[in-house]
Design a protein around this nucleic acid. Sequence first.
DNA 1: ACTTTAGTAACCCTATGGGTTACACTTGGA
DNA 2: TCCAAGTGTAACCCATAGGGTTACTAAAGT
Lengths: 98, 98
Amino acid sequence: MTRARHRSPTHPGGILKRHYLETMNLGITEVAEALRVSRKTFSKIVNERGAVTPDMALRLSKAFNTTPELWLNLQQTYDLWHTAHSSKGWMAVHALAA
Amino acid sequence: MTRARHRSPTHPGGILKRHYLETMNLGITEVAEALRVSRKTFSKIVNERGAVTPDMALRLSKAFNTTPELWLNLQQTYDLWHTAHSSKGWMAVHALAA
DNA sequence: ACTTTAGTAACCCTATGGGTTACACTTGGA
DNA sequence: TCCAAGTGTAACCCATAGGGTTACTAAAGT
């Protein structure tokens, strides 16, 4: 089952900012051009105002030599936590299996 | 890195249909009501014409006593494969890290 | 003081999830 | 045979969200 967390999981933008941009001394404009996306699109993600889509995950994986799953998993964990804590319709669902 | 696959990964709808609905002898209408979503919404997913969202993953996890990650991972793998094979803009991205 | 880099707002377009209603098809039981 | 139930889906409506461009503002660095 979902491990209970008290605080929001890390947004992929935070990882990008701290573990990539700052560490490698890269700017948003620079990376956005390398990714072949608009500066706005990348800026939104880095500042945690946008989500990493499958297409963006593929771009990030090529740029930083990682797996696309790394970024999608971060995004998924983030999204799931926020959905679980902001909507409650799913709590009304009753089990069909034991 | 992404493991090369020749064929599309399984859509969560296929798992639902074969491993849950058919096995447990459940109908779409029945499950849709249990999930508290419209028949159409659930039908689209089962017939692989709709995606499992975080909210739906939570509903499915309660109904079938699984983790929401199970469903989201299936969807993610499916989406990633299709994005990688249908768009190619990401291939133009050049590495910023070795 | 000028240039570069960033954050962001405004606006447009497109895609998609989710709901309701309605129609056509299939199947099983009365 | 006839009807009800279950199912797939189309037509519509609404809201959200990603992505692009342009432009303005602010903060650094040269």
